[in-house]
Design a protein around this nucleic acid. Structure first.
Length: 219
DNA sequence: AGCCAGGACTGAG
DNA sequence: CTCAGTCATGGC
């Protein structure tokens, strides 16, 4: 599948409406502040949100939902507080890398500078990959980028786009952005609805309500 | 009692 | 470049 090629599929917008009418608005990202979204994006890497929310609550209790406060806290304290989210040794350093960079650059600049520039800056930080970078851009800075995750690939593979399983992140992302209006609200809800569908409902039913197939493997 | 989460990096071949 | 190995806790 060529990365330059534009694949057209009008069903992508239909699926969005189907999900939206089933589950309604998701009000993502779950978090009260911009910095909470940013921290959550790192902590949720390959981790169930339930565990992440415990770590965030721990930080909140210690008034540490703040980049300056985290950078200047002891390593052992932060690691202890984020332990419920797993991978706490690597995630500690990823958090420090990210928060240090954002602190030096200034948070507000990321809401105005060109998206491609902001994205490549985030990707240059060790520990920040494409999904984490895009989650931060979309949900913390409200920039129009579509977030791709494992659920997106699995679900749409079953909806007729099996090529997604083995394609690069950027190719899958391009496909969605080619077939959707460049709109923050739509990108926001779409990703959240895919997660909602896959995590809370599809997984627990014998037949997936969207793809009408047996859930022998997660979608 | 296992299995596996809203990933990303590293080293080997 | 492809890919297995690694990081780790807690919910189901």
């Amino acid at each position: 599948m060529s990365s330059k090629e534009r694949i057209s599929d009008p069903k992508i917008m239909e699926v969005f409406h189907e999900l939206y009418s089933s589950y309604g608005p998701q009000h993502w990202w779950p978090g009260d502040s911009q910095i909470e979204v940013i921290i959550g994006a790192v902590l949720t890497q390959n981790t169930a949100w339930k565990n992440v929310s415990k770590a965030i609550e721990n930080l909140k209790k210690h008034n540490l939902l703040d980049h300056y406060a985290i950078i200047n806290s002891s390593e052992s304290l932060i690691k202890c507080l984020i332990k419920p989210a797993g991978f706490y040794n690597v995630k500690y350093h990823r958090l420090i890398n990210l928060l240090t960079y954002l602190d030096q650059q200034g948070l507000d600049k990321f809401t105005t500078k060109p998206i491609a520039e902001a994205r490549s800056e985030l990707l240059s930080i060790n520990g920040i990959g494409p999904e984490t970078a895009d989650s931060i851009l979309l949900y913390a800075f409200e920039r129009p980028v579509f977030v791709v995750d494992a659920y997106t690939r699995r679900l749409f593979s079953r909806l007729g786009h099996s090529w997604m399983e083995k394609s690069s992140y950027d190719e899958v992302q391009k496909f969605f952005m080619d077939n959707l209006p460049s709109n923050v609200k739509i990108y926001n809800e779409y990703h959240a609805l895919i997660v909602k569908h896959c995590v809370t409902l599809c997984r627990r039913r014998p037949i997936c309500s969207l793809c009408k197939l047996t859930c022998q493997f997660r979608c």
